[in-house]
Amino acid sequence: MTEFSDDSLALITTLKMAGLTTFFLMLIGTPLAWFLAKMQSRGKVFIEAIVALPLVLPPTVLGFYLLIAFSPQYLPGQLWQEVTGQQLAFSFSALVIGSIFYSLPFVVQPLQKAFEQLGTDYLEAGAMLNAGPLDRFFTLVFPMTKASFITAASLGFAHTVGEFGVVLMIGGNIPGETRVLSIALFDHVEAFNYTQAHTLAISLVIASLVLLSAIYLLNHRPIFQPNSQHNFQGNSRSKHLPQKSGNNGKVT
């Protein structure tokens, strides 16, 4: 196998991992963000802190604990092995699960912010027009916070592409299975293959730059302005009006 096809394999593995991770993150992150945005008890702070942990922890710490949890000696790893018949540690599935934890704040935080800023006004108006909770979510909340969903998905994807520490701990560097771009780059550097390393590194830089620019461009041109205040004359009692456009996800 040539170096080139090795890198291509790593690229495919990376895209597959990031794509699947993003898919699951949106599935898990959206209800979690909604729950956090609506939650009023003190426990909220604790859950927020857990969600934000991957932002501050060295990825190797997270990777270390995941490695232990995924090993057949412990319950999560055992359960996995019983259900699927395969070992979880050093598998592609382990990469995806690890990435979900690692990129969770990048999805949850912008969505939570958007849901909080959207407030309850439009939802109440929807309920008064006979729209049930799911109906309200898909016909009101989702279109009004679409930009935040795009931000969340893009950040989740991009952050997963860029991960190294977690993958290093739980991946195992199996070509076509768990060998991702960031690891491939590290291997090139270790082997003094600076040309390949340059090619990979610069491609990652450019791709990330393009993706992030696209997100910021999208956020600077909001799809709509939920703030109708400028059209609402002499309103001194407008405490119910929503604040600013809910589309600027927190980009950490």
């Binding site: 006004d121 439009y122 109440e124 108006a125 929807g126 008064m128 009101l140 279109p143 009004m144 799809i223 709509f224 302005q225 939920p226 109708s228 609402f232 309103n235 009692r237 407008s238 119910h240 009006l241």
Partner: peptide, 11 residues
């Protein structure tokens, strides 16, 4: 219900 502010859906 008609609210104090119109609450028309902006999208």
């Amino acid at each position: 219900m008609v609210f104090q502010e119109p609450r028309l859906f902006p999208h």
